[in-house]
Amino acid sequence: MEIPRHWRLKQQRYGLVGEVCPHCQVKVFPPRDVCPNCGGEARTPYTFSGRGEVYSYTTIYEAPAGFEDKAPYTVALVKLEEGPLVTAQLTDLGDKPVEIGMPVEMVTRRLRQDGDDRSILIYGYKFRPVMN
């Protein structure tokens, strides 16, 4: 069980909260307190819109422990409209084929279960095709 670790990340997992650099305005996700662009201190929280597009994607057939029952599942690099790439699963795909450039939006879903069937469920961001 890794409760503190997941609790600590709740802002990121549920709210896609990163940072904005007060010096050069670059948006940062995940937060790292140091701007990757200008090197200045960047501790100002910034909530991303959750909108973006698929930069690349893969369907995983050989899953690691904790994800076996989800395989096959699709993980993408999503290019957020504010700039950063984020790693996340794609969900609610239905019959829709995934394509690079496809518009997607953030939703909150169950990521995995931590341990056996009496342990905590870990929720966090995934992305789904934008509903028109």
Binding site: L9, A63, F67, Y73, T87
Partner: peptide, 10 residues
């Protein structure tokens, strides 16, 4: 681990 592996990435 916090931002890649947790999403099932290998």
């Amino acid at each position: 681990s916090d931002f890649e592996a947790i999403h099932g990435l290998t």
